[in-house]
């Protein structure tokens, strides 16, 4: 059960932090924030929210970054690979505080507990690929979009799993059973910055 408030950010950033946190907390997704300050990872009930620098100077997603390509590769390599690979969402942020709507999150938690009562995993965050067919039902449009996206970003199956998991939580937040095209697109938006960092697709 979530209580109180914590976290970061307000005002200007591409991603509204409130939204990201709602998704992260209600689905219990592991999550990495790329901020301008190095913070220790917070671990809550077996899932973590970490904050780290995207590059040496810390200004990668805000323009005016002076690092060379190699520097960025090294910084990325210095993040423990377990945390990097286990995360579902990667979001660039500024470092400020933000309130979260706890009631809504708790409602989503209850919903997931009901749904996964016969399953090994209890939340969307640790749902495995075997459960996708049963629990993550998608529109035809959403499926087509996912295929297109995988071709375009040239990403691995592990990366696509992250997208599906997060899209499930986004649909849960609006209490819908089927995942729509916009859910998938939004979930992809939270991973695409990492894909860009990793592979420099331009």
């Amino acid at each position: 059960m979530m209580e109180g408030f914590f976290i970061i950010q307000k005002g200007k950033a591409m991603y509204s932090l409130k939204r990201v946190l709602e998704i992260a907390l209600s689905g219990k997704h592991n999550c990495i924030f790329f901020g301008s300050v190095d913070l220790m990872p917070i671990t809550i009930e077996k899932f973590f929210i970490a904050c780290c620098l995207p590059c040496k100077c810390g200004r990668f997603f805000r323009g005016a970054c002076t690092c060379s390509d190699l520097d960025i590769q090294y910084t990325l390599a210095n993040i423990p690979s377990r945390q990097l690979n286990l995360s579902d969402m990667y979001v660039p942020i500024n470092d400020l505080r933000q309130d979260v709507d706890c009631e809504r999150i708790n409602a989503v938690h209850r919903m997931q507990e009901r749904r996964y009562r016969n399953n090994k995993s209890k939340y969307n965050g640790n749902l495995s690929r075997n459960g996708f067919e049963k629990y993550c039902r998608m529109d035809f449009e959403a499926q087509e979009f996912l295929k297109d996206a995988q071709k375009f970003f040239k990403c691995s199956m592990t990366d696509m799993d992250k997208v599906v998991r997060v899209a499930r939580t986004i649909a849960d937040l609006e209490f819908r059973e089927t995942i729509s095209r916009f859910d998938v697109a939004e979930a992809l938006g939270y991973v695409s910055c990492y894909l860009h960092l990793k592979r420099r697709i331009v």
Binding site: G63, A64, P92, F152, F153, A185, L188
Partner: peptide
């Protein structure tokens, strides 16, 4: 909605209308 904006920008990116520069913008 900001969530909607994220979704739309991703759709545009997949359609090939938006791209990212060296800073990820």
């Amino acid at each position: 909605d900001s969530a909607r904006v994220v979704a739309i920008t991703t759709i545009l990116e997949v359609k090939g209308i938006l791209g990212r520069d060296r800073h990820g913008n």
